[in-house]
């Protein structure tokens, strides 16, 4: 059997960042604190620190992405690393070269880090288990399994607004079943000590064993929103209609769409989050998405600092104060 926690190297240092599930609380706090230090880099006239100068980071995107890929790219560039963006059409790889063969090629180019997005759950673990020992792997989303950098940037955003985690109540609304973002958020919230994590959605979009993740399950949005400090809306994919999991977008919006009226059930100072890209009028009303409680664009900004933190920690160099 392979060692289960391959995220740490022999000396106990974080080498890969694949999932939040088995990381200790202190590691998460370190990432958030480091990100806090990096958050000013983007506001300086020279938006660069030389921490990763001479390092080569390869963004391996087997699945389309704009936001995640560009924020990873920006994060790497602000750390002065050289960045290579590779967009790979999965259908063409399945015909010829295997995933492993492709990795060997990038290894041979003396890369230091792979940032990987793939449509298969477990792809990042698979790659981490097979790369050369000097390479770090960052999971930028694998199937429905994990999107840990998104999870961490969400924690960063929550901490900025709420300061502490131990007294919070958080509702995650939408397609939990297929959401790697939700899984990473749930693990992070639990590990950081949030006492009440709720998931809200219809039975078809919530796994039967969701409770095993450490959440309370709600099927009624109004009930689920009552008294929460944070509302996280998830993106709804069109495939859920063709897969007969939902009847229509309109019905989904009426049942699970976040409106101003429903938001009033949450605490008055509740924040509204969304990993993007948003479907206005499907999971969220425009007036809420653009409203005063929305922190959706902040999440994007914070994503750069958090990814800088994770890249610099896994490549072994923390930002000194």
């Amino acid at each position: 059997m392979k060692q289960s926690n391959i995220q740490f190297d022999n000396t106990g240092k974080l080498r890969h960042f694949l999932t939040i599930e088995d990381l200790p609380k202190q590691t998460l706090i370190d990432i958030l604190d480091t990100a806090e230090n990096f958050s000013t880099v983007g506001t300086q006239t020279v938006k660069k620190v030389p921490l990763l100068r001479g390092k080569t980071i390869v963004n391996l995107f087997f699945e389309a992405s704009t936001r995640t890929r560009t924020t990873f790219e920006l994060a790497a560039k602000r750390l002065s690393a050289d960045v290579l963006n590779i967009n790979i059409n999965t259908s063409s790889t399945s015909k010829g070269e295997s995933l492993l063969d492709m990795l060997r090629n990038f290894e041979a180019m003396h890369s230091d880090m792979f940032v990987v997005r793939h449509n298969q759950s477990g792809a990042a673990h698979f790659i981490a288990a097979h790369v050369a020992p000097h390479i770090s792997v960052i999971n930028a989303g694998d199937g429905s399994h994990a999107h840990p950098t998104q999870g961490m940037l969400d924690m960063f955003t929550i901490r900025r607004h709420k300061k502490e985690f131990h007294n919070l109540s958080v509702a995650i609304v939408g397609d939990i079943m297929h959401s790697r973002v939700a899984r990473s958020q749930i693990h992070a919230l639990n590990r950081l000590g949030v006492p009440e994590v709720r998931v809200v959605g219809p039975h078809t979009l919530i796994p039967r064993d969701a409770h095993a993740l450490g959440v309370h399950v709600y099927h009624d949005l109004r009930e689920g929103l009552k008294g929460v400090d944070v509302v996280i809306m998830l993106r709804l994919q069109r495939e859920r209609m063709s897969g007969a999991m939902l009847p229509s977008e309109a019905e989904y919006f009426s049942q699970y769409g976040l409106t101003e009226e429903k938001l009033r059930l949450a605490k008055p100072d509740a924040i509204v989050m969304h990993p993007g890209p948003i479907n206005r009028g499907v999971e969220i009303e425009s007036s809420v998405a653009d409203g005063s409680q929305s922190v959706i664009l902040e999440q994007v900004t914070n994503g750069i600092a958090v990814r800088m933190a994770i890249m610099s920690i896994t490549l072994g160099r923390k930002q000194e104060n």
Partner: peptide
């Protein structure tokens, strides 16, 4: 198996 592990790992159960 559709259960705790498939839920955790995001695998189709």
């Amino acid at each position: 198996h559709e259960g705790i592990v498939s839920t955790r790992l995001g695998l189709v159960g």
